[in-house]
Amino acid sequence: MQKLKINQDIRSLSEVRNGMTNFIKQVHDTKRPVIIIQHGKGVAVLLAVNEFEAMQEKIELLSDIQTSLNQLGKGEGISHKDAKEKVLKRVLK
């Protein structure tokens, strides 16, 4: 996802409602989300599907990493040697 450009990517709900097709094209072309505001407050984000899926994958990976770090912190990890052996056994089957 590209970095947000405040003057182009924050739009009122009425603007988006009246020009939805244009904003969908903008999101697709720029790879940037559009932040939708109502009464001066953010209420929604318009985001391309592929960008949303990429975000989901990153969140899942980061969640897995955090789970692993928590397990290691509790002493539930295994040594590099043991992990390598387990992986090689699965790969070589």
Rank of each mutant, 00 (worst) to 15 (best):
M1N: 09
K3N: 08
K3P: 13
L4Q: 04
K5Y: 10
K5L: 09
I6P: 12
I6L: 06
I6Y: 08
N7K: 10
N7D: 13
N7W: 09
Q8A: 07
Q8R: 11
Q8C: 01
D9C: 01
D9K: 03
D9F: 01
I10Y: 08
I10N: 05
S12Y: 09
S14V: 12
S14I: 14
S14H: 14
E15K: 04
E15Q: 13
R17W: 13
R17H: 15
N18V: 00
N18Y: 08
T21D: 12
T21H: 04
T21C: 00
N22F: 06
N22P: 02
I24E: 10
I24H: 09
K25M: 05
K25W: 05
K25I: 12
H28C: 00
H28D: 11
D29T: 10
T30D: 10
T30S: 13
K31H: 15
R32P: 02
V34N: 01
I35M: 10
I35C: 01
I36H: 06
I36Y: 05
I36D: 10
Q38S: 11
Q38R: 14
Q38W: 12
H39L: 02
H39F: 10
G40P: 08
G40Y: 07
G40D: 10
K41S: 04
G42C: 04
G42Y: 10
A44G: 11
V45A: 05
L47F: 01
A48Y: 11
A48T: 04
A48R: 14
V49I: 09
V49H: 09
V49W: 10
N50F: 04
E51W: 01
A54P: 08
M55A: 05
M55D: 10
M55G: 07
Q56V: 09
E57V: 05
K58V: 08
I59F: 13
I59H: 13
L61C: 08
L62D: 15
L62R: 09
L62Y: 15
L62A: 06
L62C: 07
D64A: 00
I65P: 03
I65C: 02
T67H: 12
S68C: 02
S68V: 03
S68Y: 09
N70I: 09
N70G: 07
Q71V: 10
G73E: 11
E76W: 07
E76V: 00
G77R: 05
S79I: 06
S79N: 07
K81Q: 11
D82Q: 14
D82N: 13
E85R: 07
E85I: 04
V87P: 02
V87F: 13
V87S: 02
V87T: 06
L88Y: 14
K89D: 15
K89S: 06
K89P: 01
V91T: 12
L92T: 11
L92Y: 15
K93F: 06
